[in-house]
Design a protein around this nucleic acid. Structure first.
Length: 648
DNA sequence: CACTGCACGTA
DNA sequence: CGTACGTGCAGTGG
């Protein structure tokens, strides 16, 4: 079959490109090599590996040196781990150069005729069999392009392959690095060069130059193999086995496909926006310089701005920060009211425009040769269980302003597809709060299906729903959302520009009508203090040791975390479940449409011709059915040729 | 070059 | 004195 032929071609060429005489394989396990090489149908490599494995003797798994493939920028570190295969090679950067130096990239480029987008886990081919394994799918599908599929994701693969990043995250989302080092030292007898670090799977194997890239990959792979056996039981002990195996692991494949799909971008539109923003920023900068009599201070330097504002211009002092007084937007606005000055106006305009220009420039730079932006999702960063997105972050694309809308217009439906459909949960966190607290009034509000903030406003202010003023509504809205973050009356007052007493009165009124919410918020902290962790609806735990700290500041912060984690985390669980459901439906119904982005409470799908209605139904149904709460999970769906239009 | 602090975008 | 993130820039220290 075509895939097999292409794959063999690829691997054979890679083998040729990297002289095997340069490789070393101390401690390779013979059975593993058989397994790996048979799976690869890579007979030549197997024949060369086996003698080396035999030489290494019969070391036990605990003491065996790692499987190592040592090449510079290697093309093929093949390690056997946890019943799967690691093809590795290098971390980000440096890889291409190394590979080119070896002449391997030529071979790979020539051989890589496989369009990953055409593959599915059902393929009865060697590659298809790999893809059925989420670990491998992550690497191949998750790659930014064909070449990188076998290169740049290397060490990440070492982690994913053993599922240890996710396991470690579930064991302790806040102290991954520390925990891992403890475990490693205990179970591997590994001498770590560095002290406890925050990074997951930082095995202290970095450094040493490109020459040892392959070796490091192999070492990581070997450690990960051991680590996986330690971490998974810990995940089970903590009651998250099901979450791990039935949610996080299957989600790997979904995320990998989304990364590989990416989002199409209108380059011309983006470049128009970039020009405009740059021009606006330049104009504002000139205005600012003029206001200072021509002096060209660096407007991007808070330090220089402090000197100008508070010393030269003698402006009133703003809120204190570590390095002096803040020059953030809210401070500058305050200053503008107290001490109007053309410099302030120009500075604010410059902030706005230059930030926008920076965002646009970063996006433009991230567009790949296929005309699309491929982000990388992480399941193991956010302590609450949310996903994160990086390189670039597509979860913080502007949306609130008109300029933000124009940026979202640059995210378009790609060639060969019909529309973008976006679906987002309506007030998901408030709904979760209603569910978790069981507050009868709040549950009733959602059951009634009316405007939540209007409903709550009418209760809080004791007026009919139609008599809730926009002012009342926005105050109630701010309070409702603030509650899930542990907002204080002081914070509410500051945000609403009210006296603290008035804010407190507002909160009192709120809780007199929705008393179960207050009871819940109190009880969740209390329970967390007793247990040491919080729990989401689906059993995701977040351990928060600082709840018993004698340090008031730390304890307060911990309490707000405890308050928020079940709410934010449950929302994350829900949308992850929905993503699995959507993916399954798309596949079962034989649709070509595909998920391309997740933004915490929103899913974006690129639909194929004729599938829009089906996709909308799938989104509604799967997002709705993601959880069985005491309030309905409502979903807003929109469609358009670009992300902005779809989002309206 | 690595790191910190600031500022600011999203949910 | 509101949770969760990622990124670019300036400034600092090596």
């Amino acid at each position: 079959m075509r895939l097999n032929r292409e794959l063999n071609h690829l691997l054979t060429d890679l083998e040729v490109a990297v002289p095997l005489a340069d490789l070393e394989y101390p401690g390779a396990d013979a059975a593993a090599i058989h397994e790996v090489c048979d799976a690869l149908q890579f007979r030549t490599l197997r024949d060369k590996l086996l003698p080396l494995a035999t030489d290494a003797g019969e070391a036990s798994p605990e003491t065996a040196p790692p499987v190592v493939v040592q090449t510079a920028g290697a093309v093929a570190a093949i390690a056997a781990m946890t019943g799967t295969v690691a093809l590795h090679v290098d971390g980000r950067g440096g890889v291409d150069a190394d590979a080119w130096a070896l002449g391997a990239a030529d071979a790979a480029d020539a051989a890589w005729g496989v369009d990953l987008a055409d593959l599915s886990p059902e393929d009865e081919s060697t590659l298809g069999a790999w893809l059925a394994d989420p670990n491998i799918a992550k690497v191949l599908h998750g790659a930014k392009d064909g070449w990188h599929a076998l290169t740049a994701r290397g060490w990440e693969l070492a982690g994913i392959a053993g599922d240890t990043q996710i396991a470690a995250f579930l064991v302790n989302p806040d102290q991954r690095g520390f925990e891992l080092e403890q475990i490693l030292q205990r179970h591997l007898g590994l001498a770590l060069e560095s002290g406890p670090t925050a990074g997951e799977l930082d095995l202290g194997l970095d450094g040493g130059g490109a020459h040892h890239a392959g070796q490091r990959a192999g070492e990581r792979a070997a450690h990960v193999r051991t680590l996986a056996g330690v971490l998974e039981p810990m995940v089970d002990e903590r009651g998250m086995g099901a979450l791990y195996r039935e949610l996080e692991i299957p989600l790997i494949t979904v995320l990998a496909r989304m990364e590989h799909a990416g989002m199409a971008v209108d380059r011309a539109h983006l470049s128009t926006l970039a020009d405009e923003a740059r021009a606006r920023a330049d104009r504002a900068a000139e205005d600012a310089y003029d206001a200072l009599g021509g002096e060209r201070v660096n407007l991007g330097s808070p330090k220089q701005l402090q000197e100008v504002l508070f010393e030269r211009l003698g402006m009133p002092k703003t809120k204190k920060i570590k390095t002096g007084y803040s020059t953030d937007a809210s401070s500058l606005h305050d200053l503008s009211e107290k001490a109007p000055h053309p410099f302030l106006t120009a500075l604010l305009a410059h902030r706005d425009a230059s930030k926008l220009s920076q965002i646009i420039e970063t996006l433009a730079q991230a567009v790949q040769p296929d005309g699309r932006i491929h982000t990388t999702f992480s399941q193991v960063v956010a302590a609450t269980g949310r996903l994160s997105s990086k390189d670039p972050n597509l979860q913080n694309i502007p949306v609130r302003t008109a300029e933000g809308h124009r940026i979202r217009e640059a995210f378009v439906v790609g060639e060969g597809f019909d529309t973008l459909v976006t679906a987002d949960y309506s007030q998901i966190e408030m709904r979760i709060m209603a569910h978790l607290s069981g507050d009868a009034a709040l549950v009733e509000a959602f059951a009634a299906g009316e405007d939540l903030h209007r409903f709550v406003g009418s209760r809080v202010f004791g007026v009919a729903p139609e008599d809730v003023s926009p002012e009342m509504r926005s105050q109630v809205k701010a309070m409702s959302y603030g509650l899930a973050y542990g907002l204080s009356s002081f914070g509410l007052a500051r945000q609403l520009g009210l006296p603290v007493g008035a804010a407190q009165a507002l909160m009192d009124d709120y809780f007199s009508r929705f008393g179960a919410v207050r009871d819940y918020l109190r009880s969740v902290v209390e329970q967390a203090r007793a247990d040491g962790y919080t729990e989401t609806i689906f059993g995701r735990r977040r351990y928060i040791p600082d709840l018993t700290s004698t340090n008031r500041q730390r304890r307060d912060i911990a309490e707000r975390m405890a308050l928020n984690a079940p709410i934010q985390g449950s929302a994350a669980d829900l949308i992850k479940r929905a993503m699995l459901g959507v993916e399954r439906r798309l596949r079962d119904e034989g649709l070509a449409s595909r998920q391309v982005l997740q933004v915490h409470d929103e899913l974006v799908i690129e639909t194929a011709a004729g599938e829009q209605d089906a996709v909308e139904n799938i989104l509604r149904e799967e997002m709705h059915a993601a959880g069985d709460l005491s309030v309905p999970l409502e979903v807003n769906v929109g469609t358009g040729a670009d992300w902005r239009t779809a989002g309206h």
